[in-house]
């Protein structure tokens, strides 16, 4: 555990909590892509199957359980409790265009051809693109609530911090996981355009709205 890894995890946790609180407090999931949230629930479920087979640490187990629990709670709020506020018409990204190629890639390129390992790889690849329905939704409506941009910033920052963590681990531990690193790089790059808008607009007190 190093400082980048820890702050990355905390940033990820903050993102998840911000989104849950935003929906809960406003009693609305307007502007939130339910499809991205389902993808994240699938990501956590397929990645953390090792909860059933191995114990790493109390920190590891608790964080995994919190992530999974919050992911399903978010999906529940969007599709059940506050479904009347769900903006399905604007959440029109075709997720099969992500899930099918990512599934194929996980079968082809993995560390070990076993069910658990393929599902882990699938979750890594899927996470890297799971935010696309949300970004697509924002580009379609041309705007995002400020609290939603804080969520996206924390979520993007998390993987960027993990990149620094992997550089650290490579130099000090000789640790190198190309699948996680390349997918993490793709994931971080997808947020770059958003990071730019966040810094130039949201941090200066303006609402994030895209030119028509």
């Amino acid at each position: 555990m190093n400082v980048f890894r820890l702050t990355g995890d905390l940033s990820h946790l903050a993102a998840i909590i911000i989104l849950l609180l935003k929906i809960w407090k406003s009693r609305s999931c307007a502007g939130i892509s339910g499809k991205s949230q389902i993808l994240f629930a699938v990501v956590f479920t397929t990645r953390y199957l090792d909860l059933l087979t191995s114990f790493i640490s109390l920190y590891n187990t608790s964080m995994k359980l919190i992530y999974i629990g919050c992911a399903y709670a978010t999906v529940y709020l969007i599709y059940m409790k506050f479904r009347a506020t769900y903006d399905g018409n604007h959440d029109s990204f075709r997720v099969e265009f992500l899930v099918v190629p990512v599934g194929g890639l996980a079968v082809l390129i993995n560390h070990n051809f076993s069910l658990m390992e393929i599902l882990w790889t699938f979750s890594i690849y899927l996470e890297s693109v799971a935010i696309l329905p949300q970004l697509f939704m924002i580009s379609k409506t041309g705007e995002a609530e400020t609290i939603t941009t804080h969520y996206l910033f924390c979520l993007g920052l998390y993987r960027a911090l993990y990149l620094l963590n992997w550089i650290w681990r490579y130099y000090f531990e000789g640790f190198l996981d190309m699948i996680a690193i390349l997918a993490g790089l793709v994931q971080t790059i997808l947020y770059c355009d958003f990071f730019y808008l966040y810094v130039t607009k949201v941090l200066k007190g303006k609402k994030l709205s895209l030119p028509a």
């Binding site: 890894r5 990820h12 590891n60 995994k64 560390h111 963590n165 640790f175 190198l176 996981d177």
Partner: peptide, 10 residues
């Protein structure tokens, strides 16, 4: 062989 990645990360 030894695992090229460890599952301690989230």
């Amino acid at each position: 062989g030894s695992p090229v990645h460890s599952k301690d990360e989230l």
